[in-house]
Computed example of a mutant assay.
Amino acid sequence: MTINLAKGQRIDLTKTNPGLTKVVVGLGWDINKYSGGTDFDLDACAFLLHEDGKAKSEEDFVFYNHLIAYGGAVAHTGDNRTGEGDGDDEQIVVDFSLVPPNISRVGITVTIHEGDSRGQNFGQVSSAFVRVANEADSRELLRFDLGEDFSTETAVVFCEFYRHGSDWKFQAIGSGFTGGLAALCRNYGLDV
Rank of each mutant, 00 (worst) to 15 (best):
T82M: 09
G83P: 12
G83Y: 11
G83M: 10
G85M: 07
D86W: 04
G87I: 08
G87Q: 08
D88E: 12
D88I: 08
Q91T: 14
I92P: 01
I92N: 01
V93E: 12
D95C: 09
F96E: 03
F96D: 04
S97E: 09
V99W: 03
V99F: 05
P100V: 05
P101E: 10
N102H: 10
I103L: 02
V106K: 03
G107N: 10
I108S: 00
I108T: 02
T109V: 10
T111N: 02
I112R: 01
H113P: 00
E114F: 07
G115T: 01
D116L: 11
R118Y: 07
R118F: 13
G119L: 09
G119V: 06
Q120Y: 11
N121I: 01
G123A: 06
Q124A: 11
V125M: 12
A128Q: 13
F129T: 02
F129M: 02
F129K: 00
F129L: 01
V130E: 03
V130R: 01
V132D: 02
V132F: 07
V132W: 07
A133E: 14
N134F: 07
E135M: 13
E135R: 14
E135F: 14
A136W: 04
D137G: 08
S138M: 03
R139P: 00
E140Y: 04
E140M: 11
R143D: 06
F144G: 01
F144V: 03
F144P: 02
F144N: 02
D145Y: 09
G147H: 05
D149P: 06
F150M: 03
F150A: 04
S151L: 10
E153R: 08
A155K: 05
A155G: 09
A155S: 08
V156Y: 08
V156W: 07
V157A: 06
F158H: 08
F158D: 06
F161P: 01
Y162F: 15
H164S: 13
H164T: 12
S166W: 06
S166Q: 12
D167K: 12
D167L: 09
D167Q: 15
F170K: 04
F170D: 01
Q171C: 14
A172N: 09
A172T: 08
I173L: 14
G174I: 10
G174Q: 08
G174V: 09
F177W: 13
T178L: 02
